[in-house]
Nucleic acid binder design. Sequence first.
DNA 1: ATAAGTAATGAACAACCTGTTGTTTATTAC
DNA 2: GTAATAAACAACAGGTTGTTCATTACTTAT
Lengths: 205, 205
Amino acid sequence: MRNNNADLRVIRTKESIRHALVELINEKGFEAITVKDITTMAKINRGTFYAHYQDKFDLMAKCEEEIMLDMSRITKQNFPSVIAALETDSKTLTPLSLTVTLFEYLNINSEFMKAVLGPKGDLSFQTRLKEFMWETLYGNNPNAFIKEENFLVPGQYLASYMGTAIIGVIQQWLESGRKESPQEMARILTTITVNGPYFAAGLKK
Amino acid sequence: MRNNNADLRVIRTKESIRHALVELINEKGFEAITVKDITTMAKINRGTFYAHYQDKFDLMAKCEEEIMLDMSRITKQNFPSVIAALETDSKTLTPLSLTVTLFEYLNINSEFMKAVLGPKGDLSFQTRLKEFMWETLYGNNPNAFIKEENFLVPGQYLASYMGTAIIGVIQQWLESGRKESPQEMARILTTITVNGPYFAAGLKK
DNA sequence: ATAAGTAATGAACAACCTGTTGTTTATTAC
DNA sequence: GTAATAAACAACAGGTTGTTCATTACTTAT
């Protein structure tokens, strides 16, 4: 039986297609990209593109899917349960070591992440990543973080607030050139979340 | 000299174009919309569309620009300075009354806002709105909220965190059917921001 | 009320992009 | 070495785009 995925031509073709996609998103935004743009930049025949993907949406979906699966796999591999992650961090409420791991992955795939999370990127991917980050970092917290009604505000708004805020910090990190290490970013994110933005700014004791 | 903008035909045409745009974004996402779709739904000739807008991107940009100008105008009208807004609220750190005003505007234009901030919306608009909200609500705070280096974390990450978090709360409100009043939403947003998410959830004293 | 000015219409146009088809070429497994 | 398999290709029909032009319908200023 043949192993299709091992064919060097396939690997080369797919790599140049995906590289061209990232380039073009940064250049003109996913919106304005045509299949012709991609194949021209990837230096392949347009027919070849359709042999691998249905259209540009299919290409995008498969790239995003791969990223999400990777993150899921890495998370489960390193931290089979959130409880274990929390114990690693000696009694903080947020799994710091897990956050470091995720930032390390973002760092490796920064080219793609920067493209799809940037202003010309894909809003639906942002939504999916937001939900993933929320669930991974806080959603399964054994302290049952979000209840229907929380202490001061409805739980759904707390979840949206924190989920979106994480994405914002990631975007800022990617756009400003990833000057901080993944470790430092995890510390920053955890600090703001645990203490609240006003305290972190020094405006509140 | 004639005033072209007053021509009832122009007003009617533009209104039906913009209404069709909102409908279509909710239906299939901005991405997939063709100019033909818009003109068919708006029941106008395709040539008429090109008499008013260069293409669908130009249409979108002009709609967004109008919203941003509106919000800017309303803000300046009601609160010429952030200091005045803060004084209205008897010594909180966040301008609650200003937040209410902004949520009231979002409420009136909820159809459009829901479309462009939803999963099928426009990421670049989200970025612009984020920056506007940040600057309006916190950026000009006389307490000089964000410095180059803050107490615990770099200021740029605090700004991104809070700016994006606001957008997240707004998105959640629009998507879940705007059950809360603008007043209630302003209270929720202010509460989380001032106290921090962990406190608001009841996990921290 | 009317005339002048302006917007909207329908039709036609070339240019472009799309997705598919049938064919050729290169690689791999036996 | 040969047969199976899949990538690469050129050519095609169908649809969208942005423009133009003559004609019709509507609005406004006088």
